[in-house]
Structures are given as structure tokens and as C-alpha cells.
Design a binder for these strands. Sequence first.
DNA 1: TGACTTCTTGAACGCCCTGTCAAGAAGTTG
DNA 2: CAACTTCTTGACAGGGCGTTCAAGAAGTCA
Lengths: 199, 199
Amino acid sequence: MARTGRPRGFDKDQTLTRALELFWSRGYGSTSIQDLVDALAVERGSLYGTFGDKRRFYLDAVRLYWEVYERHLIAALDTTPLLPALREILTHPARLDELISDVGVPQGCLVGNTTAELVPHDSEATQVVTRSYRRFTEILTDALRRAQTAGEVTDAARPEDQAQLLLYVVQGLSLVSRAGLDRTAALAAIDTAIDALRA
Amino acid sequence: MARTGRPRGFDKDQTLTRALELFWSRGYGSTSIQDLVDALAVERGSLYGTFGDKRRFYLDAVRLYWEVYERHLIAALDTTPLLPALREILTHPARLDELISDVGVPQGCLVGNTTAELVPHDSEATQVVTRSYRRFTEILTDALRRAQTAGEVTDAARPEDQAQLLLYVVQGLSLVSRAGLDRTAALAAIDTAIDALRA
DNA sequence: TGACTTCTTGAACGCCCTGTCAAGAAGTTG
DNA sequence: CAACTTCTTGACAGGGCGTTCAAGAAGTCA
């Protein structure tokens, strides 16, 4: 049963991606529908018709964000030795290695930003965020368990606990960096964490 | 030169403290002036006359929050051995016993929440937040340096870097916990961090 | 007491926001 | 072609927001 009627005048996935960037850099509350209309070159009615209301639109963007990030995470950690890859992951949220300082650049982790802005008041946002955190720790736990077995990472602590701690470090770095990033201090702190994991 | 005219009908400090609790549990954007009027039993005009506009009111609340927290932090870390006290700090990152609201439980660290909501868009908020983070790392750095000298904490890393990492851990824990706190997992992660500091 | 100062009250203002809707545009189908 | 379906457009409604303000209340001071 083919769809009839006038076809959409814009690409849905591409529009969602651009909306994601806008939500990412400005946050949920500070991004108005009018901002989206202006930035996406799609009129209000079309946005509502395609994506539902603002909250649904935003949560879809967060879900997309996490899907991309999770794929990146899994791919990046599928290497030996693990610790250099882990260092890369930890520095990535704040883009320590790229040093992008242009205006309008996304700030921090979108999941973390959502946690601060919508959780715990919004139950669906809480669900998305909780799931993302759980996946993060699962993926890191698996990687750390393998690295412990290989003798690369210390077994002084359980991989679950190391992973949970690294979640805190990533989110903390991501958040604190919004207030201005001292790259040297941040990298030194990350290296301190990585060194503490070494067997 | 004594003040003349009608005296205020409410206690300024107490009102600021209650406003802090409200801002803390709901955030800046989600706390309306009407919410404050209802909760504080002070009319709009009086609030504006006493505290200026909403943003100034909020930032004053954040400054008060940090003052209380900083005093608590310094007092708590002025002990030997350091690590049990540090564990206490990490375990209750955003808890100020004297400011716990009986209405809604405050969520996370107010400085961290402010970072997520107003930084970097608001320059005065950025200044308050940045200063708080710098003070946190200074205080922890001093404590860790003493503990390294005493042989309690490992000197495998510089105290500055250990302190910066602990800032990330505190803020990350505070943020992630908004989405629901698994106390067992959180405590295990904190203990992992504390153990890694042990000489 | 009367003049003066400050605080209180709550109505009102103007702005911006999300979400809706009716009419027109642009396709598909038979 | 005509009928049908879907998308697009932009004006509009309705509400909540931060902020202001004029009039009255409640003190101090000479």
C-alpha cells in the first residue's frame, strides 16, 4: 500500500539531526519552536505533523544521539589494549582533543544535559536517560572484564564498579567543562583515572 | 544612620534560604515567580524590591548554597585520616543537612544544576560556578597534599590532578543520581575511587 | 501630631511560548 | 482528466511568564 498525497518537502532524518544539534547547543527549554522553524527551514505545522509536540521531538533527538554514541562507544572499545581507547572515550565528550571553541558548538553530553533539565520531573526522559546510563556501564563493564582477564586492568575492583565510576567521571567532566575547559588540568585528571586502572 | 520607614514583614535570610530550596528542587527555569510567591508567602512586589529580578535572586541563592557547602567541606576535611572524611563528602555530594527541604527533596548539586541550565549562556552564572569549582579543587588539593605527605594517600599522581578528578566524580554522581540512585552501585564506585587514592 | 520613608499588595502590561487550524499547494491514483 | 490524500503555510488562540506600578499600610523622626 504505497503512500499517496503530497510528499514531504524535507528529509525527516536530516531534519531530526539538525534539530538534535540545536537542542544540544541550547538545551530543551531555551530552544523554542520558532528557533527550530528558523534553523530547519521547516514551518511549525510541518514540524508538529512530522514529529509531534516539542517534547516528543526532543526525546527523539536524544534517542538518536544515544544510538550514535553507543555505536561509537562499542566500536572504539573493541580493541586491545583497552586503556588508550578508554582515554579517548573519556576525552571525547568535552572534545578535549579537537578544541572547538566556535559559538553554537554543542556543550557537554546531551544525555547529561537532559538529566539536568528534565529528570526526574519527566518520566519518559528519565527512562531514556536511565537506559543510556545502564547501556554505558554494561558496555564498559564488558570491556573492563576482558581487560582484567588479559591482565591490562587491575582487578583490585570489580569491573562493574570501575565502569560506574567512569560513568561519573565522564558526566562530571562533561558538565564541569561547560563552565570553561582547562585542557591541561582536564587531561591530567583523566590520565590519573586511567593510571589508576592499570594493573 | 538608622533606616526609617516601614520595616520588612519577613526575614530576608530565611526567605532566601527557602527560595534556595525551591530553586534547588525545581531548577531555575521551572521555578516561576508565582511559585516563589506561593511558597514564601511574600508578594511579588516585595520579592522584587528585596532581591531584584529573578536571575539575581537565583544567583544569590546559589552563592548562599556554595558558602554553606564550602564551610561544610573545609570542616569535614580538617581531620586525620583524610580518606574516611573524603568518602563522606563524595557520598553526600549535594546534601546540606541544615538546608534539606521537607517539601521536595533537592536534587543534585545546585552548582552543577546551574552549570547545566545557565552556563555558558549567562556570564555571571558562569563566574559563580567557575569560582565554586576552583575553590573545591583548591580545598581538596590542600587536603590531599597533606595526606600524601602523611603517607595516607598515594603520590602516584599530583594532588591537583586527584582533586580535579574528584570534582568530576562528585558532579557526575550528583547528576547521574537524578535519574535514580542505585545506592549499592554508587557506594561501590565511590569506594573504588577512595581505594585508588590509598597509598 | 504631621511629615517622611519604606514596605506591601495585587492588578495590569507586554512579551513570548506551545500548539491548532483552515485554506491552499502538490503530489498520486484510476 | 478528476478525485483523493498528504503536506505546507502562516495566522491565531490561549496561557504563562517576568516585571512594573500606583495606592495604601506601617513604621520612624522631629
